[in-house]
């Protein structure tokens, strides 16, 4: 009975190393996640003059956050669960939270990368610059916004077990967000869709991102959006964690 439990730091280090290696081996899809928002930003060059730099940047960052959180993270955990990879990890003497914590760390790095890629592209192609505090504040809100889509993805993986169905569901949601997000915001789809979009998890994240880029323009509306964003994340995460099963019972 001289049993020693591995130190949590050793366990986390091993998990992080494996998860970052996995992400690196999947670098093609990672690059795609970074490239799509940049392309959208560049193609919107004409809109920057009309709607402002913050509008363009916040839209692109939001799309990148959805791609990594809702699609990258969610499809990976759905697949690994289906293959029994989680079951093998769980029979080791590791607290289960470490398995997900490591995955989420990878996602935090992705959020930073997406945001940075959009910042650089905005600067290079559209000559958009923010104040230093604007940049710093935006990284912070990008993490909050990223957590919304991660928890939305967690909810999808909690409610649906089949990895193919998870995959098509996240693609569909991504597509709807992009369509309604881009065209609804411009008012092309009418006032009601505009309002719906504005208070949806797409719109609130966009609003807080734009607000943090120009802190002087932070309004009541932005504060409500921040509150809603946190609320969305909380609800999605609660459902997603409660309903999540570690195996698919095949």
């Amino acid at each position: 009975m001289d049993t020693v439990i591995p130190k949590t730091s050793t366990v986390l280090a091993a998990l992080l190393r494996a998860d970052f290696t996995t992400q690196w081996r999947n670098r093609r899809s990672v690059i795609l996640t970074l490239v799509v928002p940049v392309i959208i930003l560049i193609s919107w060059k004409g809109l920057v003059a009309i709607k402002g730099g913050a509008f363009a940047l916040s839209n692109s960052i939001t799309i990148g956050l959805i791609a990594t959180g809702l699609m990258g993270y969610t499809n990976a955990i759905a697949r690994d669960r289906d293959k029994g990879i989680f079951q093998r990890l769980r029979v080791a003497p590791v607290p289960t939270w470490t398995i997900m914590a490591s995955r989420i760390c990878v996602q935090l790095v992705m959020i930073i990368l997406v945001t940075t890629a959009v910042f650089i592209a905005g600067n290079e192609y559209d000559k958009i610059t923010l104040t230093p505090s604007g940049y710093a504040f935006t990284y912070f809100t990008a993490i909050i916004g990223g957590l919304v889509y991660l928890s939305l993805g967690q909810m999808v993986a909690g409610l649906i077990t089949n990895p193919e169905t998870v995959n098509s569901t996240t693609r569909l949601v991504y597509f709807i967000f992009i369509m309604v997000g881009m065209f609804g915001e411009l008012g092309i789809l009418g006032v009601q869709i505009h309002d719906l979009e504005h208070w949806s998890p797409y719109g609130t994240v966009k609003t807080i991102l734009a607000g943090s880029m120009e802190p002087a323009k932070w309004t009541n509306d932005t504060s409500i959006a921040l509150l809603l964003t946190v609320l969305y994340a909380g609800v999605f995460a609660t459902i997603g964690i409660q309903r999540f099963k570690w195996n698919t019972n095949k």
Partner: peptide, 25 residues
């Protein structure tokens, strides 16, 4: 050893061993 064992398909064998060595401290 589970009945159907699966490890992350992206990892090399040596990396899988590194992972499990670490997980067992």
């Amino acid at each position: 050893q589970l009945q159907s064992t699966s490890f992350q398909p992206e990892l090399f064998v040596i990396e899988v061993l590194e992972l499990y060595a670490g997980i067992y401290g």
